[in-house]
Amino acid sequence: MASEAHTEEAAGLVFHPMDQFKITPLFGGDTVNWYTPTNATLWMGIAVVVIFLLMVVGSRGRAMIPSRIQSIGELAYGFIHKMVEDVAGKDAAPFFPYIMTLFMFIVFSNFLGLLPMSFTTTSHFAVTLVLALLVFFTVTIVGFVKNGTKFLSLFWVSSAPLALRPILAVIELISYFVRPVSHFIRLAGNLMAGHAVIKVFAGFAQVAVISPLAILAITAMYGLEILVAFVQAYVFTILTCVYLKDALHPSH
């Protein structure tokens, strides 16, 4: 740190675009054990609290004519419920709470991450990797439990000419296993890139000459990031629904 600071001072500009992603223990100490409460833990906890406030406290009135908060909760419910029904099919209804959980966690982590000085849990590969693997294993297990070996017909494109089918099967198999990879890198990568770019512009804002431009750029990026925060949560959720549809109805 000391040597780094030295070189940066010499350059006159201080860029720490990746510092915001550092995992630090909340209560001092420097070792991050598996159980240590960290800033990531804190912001996951805040996400839980906010989700609780919106979905449970907001709807406690069970009002026939909803309050504003209850409306938002109902909107989220309707949005995901419709998505699950439309994309994954009616028989995917038992997975609705699970998909709702994923969506609520991602969307709130993304938006909370946009608060200044906050920490974006979904910008970490460790987090999105677990989310993507949860989806991957759920889909695979559900596929085999519901369809047995017929689930493998997902890889056997019966509409293609017979000669092409083995080649397509290999391609399908590869794409199946690449799914979770793209699934987790897309989410974390988008958020990390956006937040890092904002920090880079913030670094430029230290130079008086270009600071108005830099601040304008930060504002524009922030607007874009608000869009990205929602779109990435939406994309993650709808892809989960698409994969789930494959598991429930594996025929092409």
């Binding site: 598996w34 996951m44 906890g45 839980v48 979905m55 709470p97 677990v130």
Partner: peptide, 26 residues
């Protein structure tokens, strides 16, 4: 390991909140 542990805790808590209270109610 730290992040994964706390993430799993978070997801389980959110799942319980949603599936037990919020979603049936809404």
């Amino acid at each position: 390991p730290n992040q994964m542990f706390w993430l799993v805790v978070t997801i389980v808590v959110i799942y319980l909140i949603l599936s037990r209270i919020a979603l049936p109610r809404i």
